[in-house]
Structure formats: structure tokens, C-alpha cells
Amino acid sequence: MNTIVSRASPYLLLTPAAVIIFAITLYPIVNLFWIAFHATNYFQIGSFNAGANFFSLFNASGMRSFVATAIFVIASDVLALSLAIFLALLLEAPLRNRGLLRTVVMVPWLVSQVVTALLWQAMLDANFGPLAHLAQVMFGVSFAPLGNEFGAMASMVIANVWRSYPFALVLMLAALQSIPSEMYEAARIDGATRWQEFRYISLPMAGQTAMVVLILLTFEYFTLVTIPFIMTSGGPNEATYLLSLRVWREAFTNYHFGYSAAAGVVVFCLNLVLALVYIRKFAVKGGADVQR
């Protein structure tokens, strides 16, 4: 009797978590696939239509979404991660007022995506934004970054990085802090340069966390919709029309639930591929920590 209980107990302990997670995610995913392969008329689900809903994803406009998503995700990833690593290395140093500096640098983490989007939209406003004002007063030029394709994408990436680097920084700081200081001391005795310390101690020890952070950021950026929705509406010229925004707009502006679900399936599958790579590389080895 006792052994049965003790054998069952790990499963019982995991049950609440598993029930909640699967109850909330499985049904919507199955439903999503179902809708993606059916004709829809507003909210009504019609007959099976094979992959017809996916066609609209593979025309010129659909391609722009793939390109925009790739640019947005990769640029944000590179900037946010390198900024986080760089700052983490610096904030590990025995700075004066280190606690305060760490706090200040992390402040944007507390700002929601809604506020981020509204804030940056206002700051970059061509007529009233402080940046436009500065450009006009100091250089006599007009400054309207949201008005052209490159500027809009760059603005969105910057706003996104501004909001999301602090969390990456927290994880990187945590990883660096867990490196035993004896290792550095030993290296110092051996006469290692700073670069060598970074290359042969920090990087290998914190590299795995960096990869985890990279993948977590990628997931987030892939499915982010609030910032383009509020900040650029996907424009100009669909330059910032991310796949995620397409999912949203097809559903709630165009009422094409089939198209929306099809785009959603694509996003899901891309996520899944990444997830599998991630799990093979890191999670199975154990110990990697994950937080969205």
C-alpha cells in the first residue's frame, strides 16, 4: 500500500500543473488547426477546404510578413542579447552604487507593451515628438522615422529592445553570478587577460544561459502583437506587418478567421521547431531554466 502511494505521489504532485497547462493550451491548439483547414464566413465554420486558407500567406503581401518578422526578430534578438551580456559583464564589476545602477537600468522591464508602444509613438511623432523638435532646432531637419519603411522598422525594434533587454539582463547577471570566483582567481594567477577571462570562463559558463535567453526572447518577439498594432499598424507599406499582427488583423479587422488561423498555425509551427531545437540542445541536458 505504502509503495503504491509513494510511486503515485510524484504524478499526483505534477497533476495540478499538468491539468491547468494542458486544459488551457491543448483545446485552443486543436481548434486552431481545425479552423485553419476550413472555409469560414465571419465566425461560422464551413466545409473543409484543404489548405486554401494558407494561399493568402504565400502571395507578395504574405511574403512581406515573413520578411518583416524575420528582420524584427533577428534585429531585436541581436540588440537585446548583446546589450544584456555587455551590461551584465559591467554590472558584475564592483561599481560604486551598483545596486542603484542595476535598478535604474532595469526600469523599462516594468513598462507594459501598451505603454511602450504609445510612449515611443509619441516620442517619434513627426510634429510634436521631442526628437523631431531637437532635430528641427539643432540641425534644421525634419525627423519622421515612422514615415518610411526602414525608420518604422528601426523604431519598432528600438522600442522593443528598450522594453525587453532588462529581463535578459537579469538572467545574464544571474548566470554570471553563479560562476565561482575561484575560477577567475586561478586565471588571474595564470596571468590571463580580461579578454581571455571572458573567452575561456565567462562565455563557456554563461553561454548556455545566453542561448536560453536568446530562445526565450525569440519566442516572445515572434508572437508580439501589441507594439506593431499600436505603434505602426503594420505600415508604412506593410514594412512592419508582422505575422503576429496578421493573425490579429485577419481575425478582428477583416473577420477572416480561416486566414487568421492559417497564419496562427504557421506561427505555431515556427515556434514548435524552435522549441524542439531548444529542448534537444538544452533542456534534456537538464538544469537550464526557463521563464517567459
Binding site: 491543448l26 485552443p28 491548439i29 508572437t223 497564419a263 496562427g264 506561427v267 515556434n271 524552435l274 517567459r292
Partner: peptide, 27 residues
């Protein structure tokens, strides 16, 4: 099944919110 369960839970969490809004609403 320990690792399988843990990985299954992780995979489920990778569902993109934006893609399941409509089904979630229906649910």
C-alpha cells in the same frame, strides 16, 4: 516519464498566445 512530462509541459507553453485567442475566447 519524468523528462517526457516536463518537456511536454514546456512545449505546451510555447503555444503562441496570439494564434489561440479566438479558440481561447470560445472556450
Amino acid at each position: 516519464g519524468r523528462e517526457t512530462i516536463m518537456i511536454g509541459l514546456l512545449l505546451a507553453s510555447m503555444t503562441p498566445v496570439i494564434a489561440v485567442l479566438v479558440p481561447l475566447y470560445a472556450l
